[in-house]
Nucleic acid binder design. Structure first.
Length: 811
RNA sequence: GUCGUGGUGGCGGAACUGGUAGACGCGCCAGCCUUAGGAGCUGGUGUCCGCAAGGACAUGAGGGUUCGACUCCCUCCCACGACACCA
């Protein structure tokens, strides 16, 4: 045995042995007690693995290792979310092809990941940018298309007229292009959408049964944004046109005095009269220049323009002027609202433009009825109706039902449910993504590319310089390929898919893959999308750990795609992730680590100095896993010492542990057994440290105890535990050993220390047997010298005994 | 603005369904060992008073419920995070 523990030598030794013995490879077909553990796969960027990765992957691996020692056959795959913007921007800057930079980054990242010592099954890795993978991204598109869930429509994109390119929201912050600072405009483009809204209700309902953080569920509920209301039809005055509006407050319809349409509303041009044409056109143009961020800036004053047209209020029969304003969003509801004095926004807008207002609701207790009636204040709450014909005196809630019924009877409206959730725009006018498997006939009609032509390869003869058209449009090869296969005049779709599509089904790809991403031959994977038996056995994912930033986008898309695949008959599960946990964020001096701030902490130096086990354990020991924390390197020493000391003491044998130490060993087993599955790694490690202190006082540990402690360490410090297991003379891998069990009998004590309080203050402690009667304990408590002093000359009015804890005396 | 989360020693953080606040670690202090130590070992360490025994005060601030509150309730302050005109 060496005197000191040489982390770096030990770690490479065991990493090599694990790999040679294929310890972490899982036979997906044969496995019986399956446990599927996933982390959110990383993007292979040129920067090295950072602290955030370690903070996600290390603890997640400790959890997976614990599950394995519980007897589960744990499948823990790792892959790469390799398509996306950074590689493309890097290519624009350097001329290096994304496939080349991504391949290189992936290679270095795999090497780095292996140093963490996680139990990844590298035989089943995925890389979304490989044809073997994106063939299935394209297949998924075809299924969506076939089942009517993929359609085309015009939608706005952020566009920079200087760079001649479409921008992602993150590239267009505060309305300026992040490359050239030109003002970003909204440009309409025809794009592919997936009908996620068909699943809005299921996405919402299923949340109740998921073992997910309540916070995340709440965010998804808000994102889906279900609201019940009424769709009301307004006849345009002197015209056949009808404007449909959605409202949750149909009880205020009587006071509705004007309509507001989104500038993009399809009827705007038809409604606008000659007199207002110039103003409306100017307003529409101005609105188009604004990004959503600017349009939805609450601080900015509301603006609008009058069209000159009027509609009729179906309830009151009054004429309502029709306005346009950019605070009304084209993509929510019907892109139109009716406005009244019971809404702050409408109220302010009407006052600004001198539009008449009316009220019809006051608080149930009368409240400030006059001020409301005189339009001095804006009352937005529910209340009692007045000036509302047959609905007078009704409560808002009753009126909503009654008015809905009234409208329905006259075919002027109906009760409906609206969602905030919008269909998923999956088109990207970019190069580095999965090509959309669609071709257009000479008339411009879209046709799906037959499955036998998949993967529909991403062409390579493309310049990356932005030209205003989608990069794939420049490819001669793609054009020729299309004409050769489909005929003269046929054109390929030139958009690629959103990278969120790639990551929406990777939970299935890990299960249906042998080495995708490690082999580079195209189309070597001829099997079905997934083997039904394997899917049934492994899905849904038992534990999914990743950042909270994906609470809405990725985690909703993956749920939607899983639901759709179930309805198409390819999978059995409806939900992809049974249990979800978000790790906290590691900040540096209180700020999120980012390249631009220059405060990124690299793990490399620490790992080199102390080893992966120490670094992993330190991250876990820093605080609560789900809370994250602020980085500081001062405490890592403590974990380093812990590793050295535990190495020493576990290699020092005593014939027999004292009863106290034996009890402590078993108490530590209990604590770790409870804390690790609950992801409370910090307290599990603290318990092991307490035990270590006792062991050192004893001067060593008995063989039996050493075998227990080595196994307790296996999830937390995998390399150290293997080395210990070997050095105490055990065969095989410690990770293949069953998790130790504790003997509850050893944890029972015969006597306990009980605190004695007098008027709520601790005045002394007494030792009592566990099963002693209450009266006896109270008598003993009063006899304790210091307690007696405080009781002197006073009458005990009340005495409370909390078993095994304390006695509370009131005088 | 709305919603959410959280404020505990010099620092990171513990604390079961209300039951001895400060586990564990860092740092600091003293001692041992050493040619030396940014190594190791032993002990101490919330603040204040006291030689000590002991006592007073302490979980962002203020109030309340209780024999007893970091924990429950009310008001306020601060920090962080998410969403952002949703009709």
């Amino acid at each position: 045995m060496q005197q000191t523990y040489d982390a770096s030598a030990v770690e490479s030794k065991w990493q090599k042995r694990w790999e040679e013995a294929k310890v972490y490879e899982v036979d997906l077909k044969k496995a019986k007690d399956s446990y599927y553990s996933m982390v959110m796969f990383p993007y292979p960027s040129g920067d090295k693995l950072h602290v955030g990765h370690w903070y996600n992957f290390g603890p997640a691996d400790s959890y997976a290792r614990f599950m394995r020692m519980q007897g589960k056959e744990v499948f823990a795959p790792m892959g790469f979310d390799a398509f996306g913007l950074p590689a493309e921007n890097y290519a624009i800057k350097t001329g290096i092809h994304p496939s080349k930079s991504i391949a290189e980054n992936t290679r270095t990242m795999i090497a780095q990941l292996k140093h963490i010592g996680c139990m990844y099954d590298w035989s089943k890795t995925v890389n979304t940018s490989q044809p073997e993978y994106y063939r299935w991204t394209q297949w998924l598109f075809l299924q969506m298309f076939k089942n009517g869930l993929a359609y085309r429509k015009e939608a706005n994109v952020n566009f920079c007229s200087c760079c001649q390119t479409v921008l992602a929201n993150e590239q267009a912050q505060n309305g300026l292009c992040d490359r050239c600072s030109t003002e970003v405009i909204r440009k309409p483009m025809t794009q592919w959408f997936w009908k996620i809204t068909d699943y809005a209700e299921t996405l919402l309902q299923n949340l109740d049964d998921l073992d997910w953080p309540e916070k995340t569920k709440l965010m998804q509920r808000n994102w889906i944004g279900r609201s019940e209301g009424v769709e009301v039809e307004f006849q345009v005055d002197c015209s056949d046109e009808v404007i449909t509006v959605f409202t949750t407050r149909v009880d205020t319809l009587y006071s509705g005095t004007f309509l507001v349409l989104a500038p993009e509303h399809s009827l705007v041009d038809a409604l606008t009269d000659a007199q207002h044409e110039a103003e409306v056109r100017a307003y529409k143009l101005a609105a188009a220049k604004k990004t959503d961020i600017q349009r939805t800036d609450l601080a900015k004053e509301k603006t609008g323009a009058f069209t000159g047209a009027y509609a009729v209020n179906p309830l009151s029969g009054e004429k309502m002027p029709i306005w346009i304003a950019d605070f009304v969003l084209a993509h929510y509801g019907f892109g139109a609202v009716f406005a009244d004095a019971h809404d702050e926004r409408d109220f302010a807008f009407a006052k600004k433009y001198g539009i008449p207002l009316k009220t019809n609701i006051c608080p149930a207790d009368g409240g400030d009825a006059d001020a409301i009636r005189n339009l001095e204040v804006c009352y937005t709450e529910d209340g009692i109706l007045y000036d509302s014909g047959e609905f007078d005196g009704m409560s808002s809630a009753d009126a909503r039902k009654a008015i809905a019924k009234w409208l329905e009877k006259r075919k002027k409206g109906r009760g409906v449910v609206q969602y905030r959730l919008r269909d998923w725009s999956i088109s990207r006018q970019r190069y580095w993504g999965a090509p959309i498997p669609i071709v257009y006939d000479p008339e411009g009609n879209p046709h799906p590319i037959p499955e036998e032509h998949l993967p529909w390869l991403l062409p390579t003869d493309v310049e990356f310089k932005p030209t205003g058209t989608a990069p794939l449009a420049q490819s001669k090869e793609l054009k020729e390929r299309t004409e050769k296969l489909f005929g003269k005049g046929w054109k390929p779709e030139v958009d690629t898919m959103d990278t969120f599509v790639c990551s929406s089904f990777y939970q299935f790809m890990y299960l249906s893959t042998e080495g995708v991403g490690t082999k580079s031959e195209i189309g070597n994977r001829k099997s079905d999308f997934i083997d039904a038996k394997i899917e049934k056995k492994w899905m849904p994912v038992d534990m999914y750990i990743g950042g909270a930033e994906h609470a809405c986008m990725h985690l909703i898309y993956a749920r939607f795609v899983t639901m759709a695949l179930k309805d198409f008959g390819f999978v059995n599960c409806e939900e992809p992730f049974k249990k979800l946990v978000h790790q906290g964020i590691i900040t540096n001096q209180g700020a999120k680590m980012s390249k631009s701030k220059g405060n990124v902490v690299s793990p490399d130096a620490f790992v080199e100095k102390h080893g992966a086990d120490v670094f992993r354990m330190y991250l876990m020991f820093m605080g609560t896993f789900t809370d994250g924390g602020d980085w500081s390197d001062t405490g890592i020493k403590g974990i380093d010492r812990f590793v050295q000391r535990i190495w020493k003491v576990l290699n020092k044998r005593v014939d027999q542990c004292s009863p106290q130490v034996r009890a402590k060993v078993h108490a530590t087993v209990k604590k770790c057994t409870e804390d690790i599955p609950a992801l409370r790694f910090n307290t599990a490690i603290a318990a092991l440290m307490e035990l270590l202190n006792d062991l050192e006082k004893q001067g060593g540990i008995a063989q039996e105890g050493a075998e227990i402690v080595a196994r307790l360490l296996a999830p937390l410090a995998p390399h150290l535990a293997e080395e210990l297991w070997e050095s105490i003379g055990k065969k095989g891998f410690v990770i293949d050993q069953p998790w130790p069990e504790f003997d509850p009998a050893l944890l029972e004590t015969t006597s306990v220390t009980v605190a004695v309080q007098v008027n709520g203050k601790v005045r002394g402690q007494i030792e009592v047997a566990v099963d002693v009667a209450e009266a006896e304990v109270i008598t003993q408590a009063q006899e304790e010298p210091n307690v007696a002093r405080h009781l002197e000359g006073k009458q005990v009015r009340k005495a409370i005994y909390v078993k095994g804890r304390l006695v509370s005396l009131v005088v």
